[in-house]
């Protein structure tokens, strides 16, 4: 009887196990294996077990510069999306009293997602460009004489695009956490003499931690793994960790690209571990 039941259980988890194995375990394993292969010009992959790829990468200052640049973008985007996501959610949950209006406004936030990432990214160019809306507007008002160069193809345009693309990923989990906060808790805090800031700091923020952790995880993985935004919006002036891999791939240097991918994977996993150390998401979710 129990044998039969365990067989049924195994049958039930089999499809997901299979999918995860085929599309997650196998590719990652392949990348890890290839990262130890040798690269030979004109030949490409040569099976081997060498740490040369890692050595090359870690001793190359370009790698460090690219990773630092990626981390810098990640940090900036994390802070900005956190501030935006928190306050947008706060507004929707605690200020909009009408549930229908709140849901309507929430859906409004998702409208940009009806178009592809590429289009949303490209659409910043006519706005921020030398002859773009912002420059023309500022010139006509008379605030500036000549177009601002740093609007487009700069760190500024990269960050603004990231924020535009990823704020919702931060906002949704925070919104979800906040929506579950009993409104009576806020009143109880006010009853105990808390100011508006006191309520936010002592009640709303601690109870939104789960959402913040999940949102941060989304944003970190998205920014760390990005390649297109940096390339398009910086006009090639900035790079990301992923653009190093892209270069290697163009020269069919799969082993070094794979080694780079493993390094990136480890860094992202370290950051994720750090986030979950700070906030026990599983404990918070069952609360």
């Amino acid at each position: 009887m129990s044998e039969r039941r365990s067989f049924i259980t195994q049958l039930q988890v089999a499809p997901l196990t299979l999918v995860l194995f085929l599309f997650f375990v196998v590719p990652v394993a392949l990348v890890v294996i290839v990262s130890f292969f040798r690269y030979q010009m004109l030949v490409g992959l040569v099976p081997d077990f060498t740490f040369k790829n890692y050595y090359d990468l870690l001793t190359n200052p370009t790698t460090w510069a690219l990773y630092l640049s990626t981390l810098k973008f990640t940090l900036m985007v994390l802070v900005i999306t956190l501030v935006l996501g928190f306050w947008l959610s706060y507004f929707l949950v605690f200020h909009v009293r009408n549930l229908v209006v709140a849901i309507g406004l929430f859906l409004l936030c998702t409208i940009p997602f009806w178009t592809s990432n590429i289009i949303r990214m490209i659409s910043w160019r006519p706005i921020l460009g030398r002859e773009g809306l912002v420059n023309q507007g500022l010139q006509e008002v008379g605030l500036i004489d000549k177009p601002l160069d740093w609007l487009l193809f700069s760190d500024f345009s990269v960050v603004i695009t990231y924020v535009h693309l990823f704020t919702l990923f931060m906002m949704v989990p925070i919104f979800n956490s906040m929506a579950r906060i009993d409104k009576a808790l806020l009143e109880a805090a006010i009853d105990a003499g808390a100011t508006r800031w006191g309520v936010i700091w002592n009640v709303v923020l601690p109870l939104s931690k789960t959402g913040i952790a999940l949102g941060a995880l989304f944003v970190v993985t998205l920014v760390m793994g990005d390649f297109a935004v940096v390339k398009v919006m910086s006009g090639g002036l900035s790079g990301s960790a992923t653009s190093g891999m892209f270069n290697d791939l163009q020269f069919l240097n799969y082993p070094r690209a794979a080694a780079n991918a493993v390094i990136l994977l480890i860094i992202v996993m370290l950051i994720a571990t750090g986030i979950f150390r700070l906030i026990d998401v599983r404990k918070e979710l069952v609360r």
Partner: peptide, 12 residues
């Protein structure tokens, strides 16, 4: 001072 129906204790 108010005692709330659901007690409204801070869960964290």
């Amino acid at each position: 001072a108010m005692m709330f129906q659901s007690y409204a204790l801070f869960p964290h």
